[in-house]
């Protein structure tokens, strides 16, 4: 055994050593300062952080960040290379809001990009949650929802379902001083919120002269039990039109009544819900074999009785 141990020490995997070598080269590159483009650093949340937003951020954090970063303040993040770090520490807190937002949005190396998984509102909620661990933090909110193309105007997006439910019609308008003008030529996208992220619906569209765009709905799009889907509309070029977004519920999907995977008997279910065939073959097999084992053991008694009887007979004869 000892020789075996020595042997396996000697047989370290060459690929592993190569990987380590590769790591030695890659790690310094990755652990260099993560620079956020200057024009993105100053980005601010459009809404003020409060308790309910922090709470929403906590839930989003637990779903998307906890597995690597651990609980903020506890330092129980994964031992990865480079280390993900604890968001409550100074290293992360010294980032500006826009920097944290950018890093969550874009990701780098092992840190995934969340731009197709979380909406910008979601990401801001996570930023709010992370900031709740920084007692010295004072939030600066973006003054008002403005856009470069329509200065000073409030951008409004409306979504409605076409009569035949085959498409979603989006209308974008800019409102200022009680007058509304259509936003023309803006790139817009429509997403369906799914459990693990956003599903793009149709392609990117450009609003027409009426500020409208039409997104086709695939006929097999699955909704909830009532056929509802949660959609989210936003601009492709958020820098130009602002972060205005529209989240709403449309009855555009198929009615899907989910079947629990642990409802019926299955291999992956508990013992009580194991498939009949496996319960029977295991049970009958055990009963059969152990039944015979008991039969065989009882034969010892027969042997003993015969022996005792014969001994008595012999004694009487003697």
């Amino acid at each position: 055994m000892k020789s075996n141990r020595k042997r396996s020490v000697r047989f370290r995997r060459r690929s592993i050593s190569l990987l380590v070598l590769a790591l030695l080269v890659v790690v310094p590159v990755i652990s260099q300062e993560w620079l956020v483009p200057a024009d993105r650093q100053g980005r601010l949340s459009t809404f003020a952080f409060n308790d309910s937003i922090e709470k929403a951020g906590l839930q989003l954090y637990n779903l998307n960040c906890l597995s690597c970063h651990g609980n903020p303040g506890k330092g129980n993040y994964q031992q990865l290379i480079p280390p993900p770090g604890d968001p409550a520490t100074e290293k992360i807190q010294r980032n500006r809001d826009g920097e944290i937002f950018f890093k969550i949005m874009e990701g780098r190396g092992q840190m995934p990009s969340f731009k197709n998984t979380l909406s910008s509102g979601d990401i801001w909620a996570i930023v709010a949650y992370i900031r709740s661990f920084n007692s010295g933090y004072v939030q600066t909110v973006m003054p008002e929802i403005t856009s470069g193309a329509y200065p000073g105007a409030l951008i409004a997006i409306t979504l409605r379902l076409a009569a035949e439910k085959e498409s979603v019609i989006m209308k974008v308008s800019a409102i200022r001083d009680n007058t509304s003008v259509p936003v023309v030529g803006a790139g817009v996208k429509l997403f369906v919120k799914r459990t693990f992220g956003l599903l793009p619906l149709d392609e990117e569209k450009i609003t027409d002269d009426n500020g409208m765009a039409t997104f086709g709905i695939p006929p097999d799009l699955r909704g909830d039990t009532t056929g509802n889907i949660r959609v989210s509309a936003r601009f492709t070029d958020e820098e130009k039109f602002g972060t205005a977004a529209k989240d709403t519920v449309l009855q555009a999907g198929l009615k899907v009544i989910p079947v629990s995977l642990v409802k019926d008997r299955a291999m992956w279910n508990t013992l009580r819900k194991a498939p009949w065939w496996i319960l029977l073959s295991y049970g009958l097999g055990v009963i059969l074999v152990w039944g015979f084992i008991i039969v065989v053991m009882l034969k010892l008694r027969d042997i003993f009785i015969i022996g005792e009887f014969t001994e008595k007979e012999n004694k009487r004869e003697a």
């Binding site: 015979f292 039969v295 065989v296 034969k299 010892l300 042997i303 003993f304 015969i306 022996g307 001994e311």
Partner: peptide, 28 residues
Amino acid sequence: SFKWVHHAEQYKILRQAVKILILLIIPT
């Protein structure tokens, strides 16, 4: 020894038991 007295009946029981065991052991 379970009071084994080399009785013919005891040998018969023993042979039966061993036969059952052998037949069980192969699949097990």
